[in-house]
Structures are given as structure tokens and as C-alpha cells.
Design a protein around this nucleic acid. Sequence first.
DNA 1: CTAAATTATGAGTGAGCACTCACTAAAATT
DNA 2: AATTTTAGTGAGTGCTCACTCATAATTTAG
Lengths: 195, 195
Amino acid sequence: MEERRREILAAAGRVFARKGFERSTTAEIAREAGVAEGTIFRYFPTKRDLLVSVVASLVMESLPALLERIETGTIEDAIKDILRNRLDLIKENAPLLKLFFAEALFREDLREKFIEEVVLRATARAEAFYRQQQEQGNLRPLNPQIAIRCLMGMLGIFVIWKEFLGGDKYVRFDEEEVLETITTIYLDGVRDRGR
Amino acid sequence: MEERRREILAAAGRVFARKGFERSTTAEIAREAGVAEGTIFRYFPTKRDLLVSVVASLVMESLPALLERIETGTIEDAIKDILRNRLDLIKENAPLLKLFFAEALFREDLREKFIEEVVLRATARAEAFYRQQQEQGNLRPLNPQIAIRCLMGMLGIFVIWKEFLGGDKYVRFDEEEVLETITTIYLDGVRDRGR
DNA sequence: CTAAATTATGAGTGAGCACTCACTAAAATT
DNA sequence: AATTTTAGTGAGTGCTCACTCATAATTTAG
């Protein structure tokens, strides 16, 4: 049944997200899914396939949302809106993204899949947005590939800090203030030009 | 002999950096170090201790360099100089940092050590720099904790892209242009105010 | 209701691997 | 030169864990 497949996939996702791939055992995944260990292997030939399927389903479900919704309005609003949307999306899938990220660091094949199907497509979309705004004279003529990554990096570090490293225990940030500050810095920089 | 200890540590670092912790075997580390497998355990009680020691030695050796050298001169130069120095330092230790990062994602104890001994100290130093410049009226009155992390994030994403994910295969960036653009954006933003 | 087909089970298997230990080689001490 | 101490070895051990397979339960077909 297709239902079982999804249950197993979901359980695997939870366990992987909790412990990472290597430290997760198929026994625990089976327990979490409420099936026998053997059942897993009726649906997925190897543990590795389980990982790839988990990741694939995440990508397939989240990517469309990641690529849509470029708002109009002032650039401030557009950027803040983009950041907010992406942040929500990331937060929803944080455990799995973390898993994926961790695995991608040492697994060429997973990494390629991720970079090609998510990163490159998302950045291309964002770069197009930058170029478009550039032509309208709203943004400075910087290299869009670099400029876009800078914005992603600013957002990314707070995601990594909070969602991946549990940094809240050490320093907790107010989300609105962060988004506000990122937008401010990205658009106008930190230099004080006098009032 | 103390020499052996360092050889084993170095070999372990190389193997861990290549494969990640779980996928590295003590047999391979022994081969890489040119010693018998049993010898490893005369110096390090467990494989885990090996990891912790590798990480500790990295931290101990790199941290001082990470914290010194806040230059004077214009803010542009100071920031560019800081970015350049940190980038060199990171690039030198990239494989081990990657390993550490990957492990930290799923290991509370390692993570705590890293955050407390490296991240918090480094950010505190940088925040102090920001505050100082703020008081001199050079930088806008933004939350220094956030502002500093934004700069780190901008730099960080390029490091992750190139050193951790091997993104050069897809998009390669000119280092100088990246540093230049980061500095520009960080100081003055991307908004076009007309010439 | 029975037979066949499908799906689920979990004890069992074998491979991999961290770690041990009985032994050897070398160095230090007498 | 003899003896003790220290350093190094690698085959062996026991445990973990992904994966198998003979059997059982459930569903479907006749």
C-alpha cells in the first residue's frame, strides 16, 4: 500500500533529523513507523535509498513554494516579504534541511542533486529579480550572483544559528528585528552618513 | 613519544576531513599514520577522543589568530582586511572546519564547546569593534550582535559554497570581487541613490 | 468458504568495525 | 650483560546493524 510507504518515509525523516543518517538504525525507524524492520525493505531496497527518497520528497514538495511569490511594491517590502516567506518555509523543514545539509557535506551525489535542483534554480530566480530591479535603476550595478548570495548569507547565518546549532540557548534574536536589520543593511549599509 | 601522538592526530584529521567521522575507520587512520591499529589506542582511549582532540588542537591553534589583528585606517580597509585574514585562516583549516561543522550539527557536546570557545568569543570581539566604531559616529546605531552576524553570514556563505560544498564546479567567484562587493554592500547597501 | 496472491513479520545472518590483549622490539636502568 | 620498563603490534573478539528469508497474517479472487 502507498500509505505505508509514506508512513515509513515520514518516520525515517523524523529519525534521521533527530540523529543524523549514520546514527539512525533501521530498527528505530521501524519502531517509529510502527512496522517490522523487514517491512522497510519491501518498500526501500537500502537504507541509503530511504535517505534519498526522504530528501527527494522534501525537495519536490518545497521547491515550488521556494520559487514563487516575488512580490511587488517597494523594494523594502519585496525583500522583507521574500525573507519572511523563505524563513517560514525553512523553519517548517528545518530538521530535514539540517540532515540534508549535514549529509551533503560528505556525499557528492546528494550534494549534486541538491545544488542542481534547489540552489541553482533558486539563485537563478533571485538573480533575475535583482537584474530586473537593476534595470529599473533601483539597485546598484553589482554582480547579481554575488549580491544575491550576500542576502542569502545574511539570512542563512541566522537560520543556521537558530535552527541548526540551537544557538537560542546562547543568544536569542527577535525575528522582526533581524529581518528589519538585514533589510536595512542590505539596502543602505551600515555606514553612518550623518543624519 | 609525543611525536607519535601528533602524527596520529594529523592522520586522523586528514581521514576525518576526507570521509567524515562515522565513515572513517580506525584501521584507515592507522594506515594513514603508518602505525598499527592498536597503537592508536595507546594514545587515545576511543575514536571519539580522537575527534575531540583533533578539534581541540584546531581550536587552540587557530583561535588566537582569529581574535587578533583588528586593523586601523578607514573602515573599508579595516573590514576588507578582517575579511581577508579570516578567509585565509578559514581556507587553511577548511577540511577540519567542515568536519567539525558536520559533527556539531548532531552532537550537543561538540557544539557547545565550539560555540562557547570560538563563536561567542569571536563575535564578542567583533561586536566590540562595531560598538567602538558606532561611538565614533562611523557606523549606524544598529544592534551590533545582528550587524556583525550579517557580515559573517555574507562571508560565510561564500566559504560554505566553495570550501564545504565544492560549488566552484557550478559557479566560480573571483575572490577579490567578492570581498569588494561584500564590503560595498555592507557599508553602503545595494540601493541605487542615483549618482 | 477456500485457494491463491499479496503484504507483513522478526529471528537470524554475515560483514564491518572499535577496541583488547598476549606478545615482541626497543630503550632505559642496573 | 642482564633485567626491567616502555612502546608498538596485529590477530582476535564481541557487538552493532543493515539486510534476508522462511513463515504468518491479511487481502483478493473464484
